[in-house]
Nucleic acid binder design. Structure first.
Length: 473
RNA sequence: GGUCCCAUCGUCUAGCGGCCCAGGACGCUGGCCUCUCACGCCGGAAACACGGGUUCGAUCCCCGUUGGGACCA
């Protein structure tokens, strides 16, 4: 059972590149946990690796979280702004004899490690500097934590259960480098303590770091938080998801035409479940989220299912919202000029006939091109098959009747087609397909009456006449 | 190599000893609908890694094997 005190969780990405799928899932679970328990979600930027950390990356992370609607209550805090705090804690340990200066150089360490390995001993730090009485001249020391050699450290993980580590296995880890920067394991502990984090929910890859962090908490005189280690997200080849598996950055999914709610829903169901339910609104997720229902096994990222969800959410979305997104895309791709101001109601009608067969916004954009562009590109195969000379009399007759149709609505257009079909004793496809090719350039589109209605009388007639002209030449 | 974790259809998962000759979803597939493509609807194939225990009874508990993964180096 959760304690009475307020739940405080955090997401602590390193700003060394894009915001990844795995990271987002961790952020999402933290966020859901916070919202579920009415707690606080804190954002912390772990930027102590200053050779790889960039401000652009921080911005990408913030933008990605905002896009997904993962709002944070405190932060973003940056570790580089907290150096005094780490120093203070290092001094505290040093003062209590729980840490010591180490003057060994990386080269010396490496040599001794190889030696140990060669002699069949475990490659653990030999505590050479532990009993040093005076500083080694000309060298700037790092600081090592004096870890316990005996007993065990038990991680009571909310997902894994009790995981036992022999303390003997853990060596005296460096907590502060000679350049004065704290190491990951130390900074994390100090940050989580000072930020009063109650639940550390993070990737499985940190499970092995946890016992040494627990020792650090204890040495510092603090109660460790609760831990929950989430299983990894894998690529199709069952190795940790990475760039070589294709799109892994949140921004890529945005650019590919995914809706944030689709990604959120998909990621929530990756490693977590609630009975047989597949579709979850954000509120349902908040209401139902529980660490108990997080699985232990790693899960393979399945783009197919994400696509299905995206399709689903496109159907659910407000046409007005989709119209805005579509317009943005059309402008971005230069299909319509940036200064164009198409009628929004018309855009909504266009969206409505397109959603059903759009799995992504990009697909929708492509289907929208014939409606918004001046000219169309006619697919050669489609032209050869459907824009034939025996279609000409039908097309001519159709144009004539379309011109007379009023109002120019789905119902009236349908009447025109039905009339033609009945009089000529033909199948609808005989006339619908040539018209489809004439209007859209291809053989695939929404229902032909809808296409004609949304395209409008002028454009429809112009395109059919153009097609007739080309057949006759 | 050492340490730790994990193991149900191809994939995400339900299952927390009998309701399971294992349910849902994606994908795949047969059919219906149909002006194209979709959507939708109906149907199908598809899994408890293996071997020991425990138990009246194991997908579910324990041990081992195998296989995967992570971390450390």
């Amino acid at each position: 059972m959760l304690s009475m005190s307020e739940v405080r969780v955090r997401f602590a990405p390193s700003p060394t590149g894009a915001l990844h799928i795995g990271g987002v899932r961790t952020a999402l679970f933290n966020w859901l946990f916070a919202r579920r328990h009415g707690g606080k979600f804190i954002l912390r930027i772990e930027d102590t690796d200053r050779t790889r950390s960039t401000d652009e990356s921080i911005q990408i992370i913030l933008d990605g979280m905002k896009w997904l609607g993962l709002d944070w209550d405190e932060g973003p805090f940056r570790q580089t702004e907290r150096m005094a705090i780490y120093r203070e804690h290092v001094d505290k340990l040093l003062g209590q004899g729980k840490a010591y200066y180490c003057y060994c150089t990386p080269e010396e360490l490496e040599a001794r490690r190889k030696e140990a390995l060669a002699a069949g001993r475990p490659p653990k730090y030999d505590r050479k500097c532990r009993l040093l009485k005076a500083p080694v001249p000309g060298r700037t020391p790092a600081v090592r934590f004096l870890s316990s050699d005996e007993g065990q450290t038990i991680v009571r993980d909310l997902i894994r259960g009790a995981v036992t580590f022999e303390n003997q296995q853990l060596d005296d880890l460096i907590i502060m480098r000679s350049d004065g920067f704290p190491t990951y394991n130390f900074a994390v502990v100090v940050d989580d303590v000072t930020m009063k984090i109650t639940h550390v929910i993070r990737g499985d890859d940190h499970l092995n770091n946890t016992p040494r962090q627990i020792q650090l908490y204890q040495a510092l005189g603090y109660e460790p938080p609760e831990f929950a280690h989430l299983p990894m997200i894998l690529g199709p080849d069952k190795t940790k998801l990475s760039k070589r598996h294709g799109a892994t950055a949140v921004t890529e999914y945005k650019d590919l035409g995914y809706l944030p709610e689709a990604l959120v829903n998909y990621l929530a169901r990756l490693g977590w479940s609630s009975g047989d339910q597949e579709i979850f609104s954000k509120q349902e997720l908040i209401d139902k989220f529980s660490l108990e229902n997080v699985g232990k096994a790693p899960s393979v990222f399945n783009p197919e299912k994400l696509l299905w969800l995206n399709h689903h959410y496109i159907q659910q979305a407000e046409p007005g919202r989709l119209a805005d997104l579509l317009l943005e895309l059309l402008k971005k791709d230069g299909i319509i000029p940036a200064e164009a101001r198409p009628d929004r109601e018309w855009m909504k009608r266009l969206v409505c006939i397109l959603t059903e067969r759009s799995h992504t916004l990009v697909e929708m954009k492509n289907s929208a091109i014939p409606f918004v562009a001046e000219d169309i590109h006619v697919d050669e195969k489609a032209r050869a098959k459907h824009l034939t000379s025996d279609a000409v009399p039908l097309l001519l007759l159709l144009v004539e009747r379309l011109k007379a149709a009023k109002p120019f609505t789905h119902a009236e257009i349908e009447k025109v087609f039905n009339g033609l079909v009945a009089e000529k004793g033909i199948k609808l496809g005989k006339i619908a397909q040539p018209v489809r090719v004439a209007l859209t350039g291809g053989t695939v589109s929404p229902g032909i009456y809808e296409v004609i209605e949304v395209m409008g009388k002028d454009k429809t007639i112009k395109r059919i006449e153009t097609a007739i002209g080309k057949i006759q030449n």
